Amino acid sequence: MTRIADPAAFIAANTRLQPVPHAPEISLWLADEVTPIWRLTEEELGEQGLPPPFWAFAWAGGQGLARWLLDNPAEVSGKRVLDFAAGSGLVGIAAMKAGAASALCADIDPFCGAAVARNAAANGVTLDFTAADLLDAAPPEIQVICAGDVFYEQPMSGRVLDWLRLAAARGTRVLVGDPLRTYFPKDGFDLLAEYAVPTTRELEDSAVKRTRVWTLSAKR
């Protein structure tokens, strides 16, 4: 993994604390524009052609899932929660605010550990973090797995789906937030809620994104 001199300083210099549009109970350190921070990220890591810095934005699926957790706290109250591909840690923060016993944020992006720590502190919650690629092993023994905006490219979407199905088959509650991205497989998912989530045309194809929250059935 690429080493960064001071990811926390980079985040502090290039983001500002602002409320999440669809979950204003939560504030995150976010970038205002995609292109400048994307360019700065590539410069910092010394690598071109990187995916956008997901940790620097509140993506539609994560916003929808965070909203649903805040409105349905019984889903996570007193439970151990995994925020998979956590990015900013938005969903993990929502889980803790909804009464989760613990929330582990997992993401392989080298900036995410610092982003999650900074956002957790801003919202007065404690989050654990791992940079391990959890897809390389069996799903952890945990009660709830949350995954927002994970079906955006192949072949990763297939790996994620197989991993989540394994978790569901073992009795883990799997919750997914997704605005019907290209590789989202509706088969096996049960719809829980639908929202009109404010976003930006820089990130999405519209200023308001129709976003859904699903649970994955244990049966394939």
Rank of each mutant, 00 (worst) to 15 (best):
I11M: 03
I11R: 03
I11Q: 03
A12I: 11
N14W: 11
T15K: 15
P19W: 10
P21T: 09
A23V: 05
I26P: 01
S27L: 14
S27N: 14
L28Y: 14
A31M: 13
D32M: 10
V34A: 11
T35C: 02
T41W: 12
E44V: 03
L45R: 09
E47Y: 03
Q48A: 14
G49R: 14
G49E: 14
L50T: 09
P52V: 12
W55E: 06
W59V: 04
W59E: 09
Q63T: 03
A66D: 06
A66T: 09
L69D: 04
L70W: 04
D71W: 04
A74G: 11
E75H: 10
V76T: 01
G78Y: 06
K79N: 07
L82S: 09
D83I: 10
F84V: 05
F84H: 04
A85W: 09
S88F: 11
L90P: 02
I93E: 00
I93T: 05
A98T: 11
A100P: 05
A103Y: 05
A103I: 10
L104G: 08
A106I: 02
G113N: 14
A115T: 14
A117S: 15
A117F: 09
A120M: 13
G124I: 06
V125E: 11
T126E: 15
L127D: 14
A132W: 08
L135G: 00
D136C: 03
P140L: 02
Q143T: 07
V144A: 01
D149W: 04
V150S: 01
Y152K: 11
Y152I: 13
Q154N: 12
P155G: 05
P155E: 03
G158L: 06
R159I: 04
V160T: 03
V160Q: 00
L161G: 00
D162N: 08
L164I: 12
A167Y: 07
V174A: 08
L175R: 04
V176R: 00
G177N: 02
P179A: 05
L180F: 13
Y183D: 06
P185V: 01
P185C: 00
G188F: 00
F189Q: 02
F189T: 06
L192K: 07
A193Q: 05
V197N: 08
T199F: 01
E202T: 04
L203E: 06
A207K: 15
A207E: 15
R212P: 03
W214K: 11
W214S: 11
T215F: 06
S217P: 10
S217F: 07
A218K: 03
K219P: 05
